[in-house]
Structure formats: C-alpha cells, structure tokens
Design a binder for these strands. Structure first.
Lengths: 208, 208
DNA sequence: GTCTATAGACTGATAGAC
DNA sequence: GTCTATCAGTCTATAGAC
C-alpha cells in the first residue's frame, strides 16, 4: 500500500516531465517508465493506457492552476489594483515551478482536432470563464469610470496581462538566445519584469 | 520539369500545415502525402526523410520571418517610434497569414534536447541577435536620455513588445474560450489590440 | 505488484516495375 | 517521376509467471 502510492506518484511525476518536454505524440512510455525507475508494464498497470495517463496529468495540472487563480479572481474584498498585482505575482510564481506548463497546455490544444472539446474536458466553462469573474467586472467598471471605454476594453487588458506574464516563461529558450542572456540573467530579468508589468498595466488604466 | 516543381511545392505546403498542427513527432508522412494528393513514396523521393523535409520547411519559414523583420530593425533612417509601430504591425500581419508559426517554432524548440543547437541551426547568431541591432541601440539611448534606466532596460521592453504581439496569436484558441468570443470577435480584438500595443509601449517609454 | 516475453499495429523508408 | 509492395524498426498494450 505504501509502495503502491510511491510507484504511482513516481510515474506521474516522470510523466509530467516527459509529456511537457516531448508532447503527447513524442512522449514514450519507456522513457516515462525508465525515468520513474519502473518497467513499462507498470505504467499500464496503474494507468491502463498512455492516453488515460495523459488525461490524468493534464486534469491535475489544470486543477492546480485553477485552484490558485480562481479564489482571488472572484474575491469581492480586494480592489482592482490588488487583483492586478496578485494575478501577475501568482502566475509568475506558479510558472517558475512549472516552466513547461504553458507549452504543455497550448501544445496539446493546438494538436487536438477539436479544441472546444479539449478545453471543456479540462476547464469548467462556468467557473473558469473570465468574463463572468468579479475581476472582469471591476475592470469594466473602472474603464467606464475613467472614460477609457472608447479606446480599450477589459478584454484587451486581460489578453495583455496574460501575454506579459506568460510569454516570458513560454519563450524563455528562444528569448535567452535572441537577447544573448544565460539562465541566471534571464531569470533575474523575469523577476524584475514582474514588478514592471504590474506598473505598466496600472499605467495603461490610469490607476494610481 | 513543370510537374516536378508543382509536386514538390504541394508537398511542402501540405507539410507546413501538418507539421505546425501536429508537431514533428505527431506528423505522419501519410497525412502529408494524402493532403498533397500524392503517394507516400513521393515524399521520400523529393525530401529523402521526414527529418530533412521538416528542416527544409523550418529553415524556409524562419528565413521568411527574418527577411521581414531584419531589414527595418537595422534601418538607420527610421526613428525609434517608427520602428516600434513597424515591428508590431509587421509581426501581426505575418502571424495572421501564418497562425501556426509561433507554436511551430516554440514547440520544436521545447521538444529538442539541445535548444542551442536547434536555434543556431535556423537562426544566424550574428544577424538575428537583437542586442546588436540598431533598434536595440536606439532603445537603450532613449531610455538613458529619458533617465528611465533605473527602472527599465531595453531587454524588458523587447520581451514585452514580443509578448504583446505574439501571445494573442499563440494562444488564440484558449483565449477565445476563456473570454467567450467567436473567431470573428477575436480577430477584431487582435486588430484593435495592434494599435493599443504601439500606444502602450510608447507610453511606457514616455514617447510622444 | 512487479517482472519478462511477446503480440499486434503502425510508420518511415526502400526496392523495383512501369 | 510515380506507383505498388514490402521490409525493418518502433511502440503501445497484454498475457502469464512469480
């Protein structure tokens, strides 16, 4: 029983790693098994098939992301300003620990012939719908109050908020090369960037 | 001779499509061949192997992107302001015609065990190095003149400029779902976003 | 639960006729 | 240049011993 949980968890950890580096099609059961220190058959014993192992991993990962984001996105107590800071900070912290996650999600989304089904499989259309969140409504209200609504919409702000927080992690390898930075320098740049992004989004919104 | 070029071009067009949707590992020679209206053996006749077909496509695509970006990145005549507008505009136009390109490049970069080799295979470290471009130097000079250099660096601006122009295309499917927009609405949003991004980058830099 | 052995299906690549 | 046929290798998945 003790060992059972150990093995299952080791396989999942290895699978997270291999799937996010190679994608579903490129991942090999043998690599997942080897890297977990077990034989191929064990992977099938615990998860039946490659596809169901993948689904398990993906569901858990998205769930973890949702559990971090959703609570304060819908918190009525915090201000728009606080939410902006928090979102950017939480996303950065999460992605530093899960560097491969954005590619993991986007990659399989792209590969899938039916993206709508894929998204509805892992996301909850009611809870995860940003347009219905308190955050979104606060943003809309602010834009109207500041009379910015003839130039921007909440959608624009959200897209660029995600762009600025996610893209640096997503394209780290390419950017490190194009900007000629080593891993440490780039890491430092991302940390500095976090504060700047908050500042910029607020500047765009005439906040503070 | 006439037919030779036709077939070769049809295979490449089909390969571009399949590779960017499925990635290298997920792509099938048979799908590329079928979609091009030829038999499997023809793909090998013209391109010898799956890998060399992929390399050909990737090289051509990156070359096309470079040929669009590099000329005005290093144009001494245009101002910093003009370069910002132009970069954002050119990237948007290019990505509208090549929606799958960012994933195509990033995906295979991630998959590769040795990203440095991959990048040096398709990019030219001398010409494509942003840090050495006129654009980058103009940016640095401006930041110093405006005494912004204690808060931002040219690197930050470039990362976010790319983030804002590329990310909306990269994550279109996910964002359309999370924001509850159909293809037309999202397309309109991206077009509006283009002007805003130029404005925002300039606002950040105290330009105009 | 874990192992070895192997089935069964698929895929990239080549040979050879036309 | 284009086709059919087929090989050789790889990979997922299962059967069965322990």
């Amino acid at each position: 029983m003790e060992k059972e949980l150990m093995t299952e968890e080791r396989i999942k950890r290895s699978a997270r790693n291999v799937f996010s580096r190679k994608g579903f099609a490129g991942a090999r059961i043998s690599e997942i098994a080897n890297s977990a220190g077990v034989k191929n058959a064990m992977v099938h014993y615990y998860f039946r098939s490659k596809q169901s192992l993948f689904d398990t991993i993906m569901k858990e990962t998205v769930m973890k992301l949702r559990s971090i984001i959703n609570p304060f996105i819908n918190d009525e107590q915090t201000s728009l300003e606080e939410k902006i800071d928090l979102t950017i900070e939480k996303i950065h912290i999460f992605l530093l620990d899960n560097q491969d996650l954005p590619m993991f999600i986007l990659n399989e989304l792209q590969t899938n012939t039916n993206p709508e089904n894929f998204i509805s499989l892992y996301f909850n259309p009611m809870e995860d719908n940003i347009s219905n969140s308190i955050f979104f409504k606060q943003m809309e209200t602010h834009i109207k109050e500041q009379k910015l609504d003839n130039v921007i919409s909440a959608n624009h702000v959200f897209i660029n908020l995600f762009a600025m927080s996610v893209f640096p992690h997503l394209s780290s390898k390419l950017l490190m090369n194009l900007l000629e930075l080593d891993e440490q320098e780039y890491h430092l740049l991302i940390m500095e960037g976090q504060k700047l992004e908050s500042l910029w989004i607020k500047k765009i919104l005439n906040l503070e």
